[in-house]
């Protein structure tokens, strides 16, 4: 564990050195994703000017939803997105060899070697949106509520990570995962715009179970709004455990299946 922390610290230091060489692109992810979530806010502001509620949620809850999704996305961008995103190329090019021969977990190194502090302002912006949404929804913060919300955000970050790694780990078995990644993009884009409360029937099965992007920002907001029932909480924890196990299984099988250069 101590060795892993030392490795993480070193990876962060190297990454900072690398980023300083391309200062102009440093805040790129912030501006790109920041504009995306601002557009979302404007869209729902326009919709709520014409209706009172969407799927039982009023304007405040929806702002909380957008803020929470933005926070999940921002932390993902800062911590592991750029590292995990490189997995398919490393498998295809055989560069994975270098990771397997190092005395540190290859997935840990891959996940954390490309941290991107350029998205940190997006974290701040997301917190501002959440604070604004909480004010609009009449949420009264207290330590228990804050700790509960933090728990759900962290748990959903694990789920987000699992899904990202799972999709990219398929590169061990197939030539290209480009279409799977397109599907992932489409699902994230849809879930960013729609809270889990609007899904029903087959859509609920797809977006809350098979590809559970629909629950990622919904559960933390439901908790804040006092709507998170015990079955919903158990479901959220269960699905995260299930996907973590599945991701670990696919990754480990993939590593065994990996036959070095250009597999």
């Amino acid at each position: 564990m101590r060795k892993n922390f030392r490795v993480i610290k070193e990876l962060v230091r190297l990454r900072f050195q690398n980023l300083m060489m391309f200062r102009l692109g440093f805040f790129g992810p912030f501006f790109v994703d920041g504009s995306l979530f601002l557009v979302q806010l404007l869209v729902f502001d326009a919709v709520y000017a014409n209706v009172d509620e969407i799927g039982g949620w009023q304007r405040g809850e929806m702002i909380l939803y957008i803020g929470t999704f933005s926070l999940l996305n921002a932390v993902n961008m800062v911590v592991y997105f750029f590292g995990v995103g490189g997995i398919p190329d490393k498998i295809k090019s055989g560069e994975m060899d270098l990771y397997l021969t190092k005395p540190v977990s290859p997935l840990l190194r891959l996940s954390l070697e490309s941290i991107n502090p350029g998205s940190l302002p997006l974290v701040v912006m997301s917190l501002i949106i959440i604070a604004y949404g909480a004010g609009s929804a009449g949420v009264r913060w207290n330590p228990k509520l804050f700790a509960g919300y933090l728990f759900w955000v962290l748990l959903m970050l694990v789920l987000y990570y699992d899904l990202e790694v799972l999709i990219r780990s398929l590169s061990f078995f197939v030539v290209s995962t480009a279409k799977m990644q397109k599907l992932e993009e489409a699902c994230i884009s849809l879930s960013m715009q729609l809270p889990g409360t609007v899904y029903y029937g087959i859509y609920k099965l797809i977006f809350c179970f098979l590809l559970p992007y629909g629950i990622m920002a919904t559960l933390p907001v439901k908790y804040l709004a006092g709507e998170c029932t015990l079955p919903a909480a158990l479901y959220g924890i269960g699905i995260t455990v299930l996907f973590s196990a599945l991701t670990a299984l696919v990754w480990k099988t993939g590593i065994r299946h990996y036959n070095s250069v250009s597999s």
Binding site: V47, V51, I54, G55, L190, Q193, L194, V198
Partner: peptide, 10 residues
């Protein structure tokens, strides 16, 4: 799908 679900609810 976005339109169908969002506006279906609204």
């Amino acid at each position: 799908l976005f339109a169908y679900l969002l506006w279906g609810t609204i």
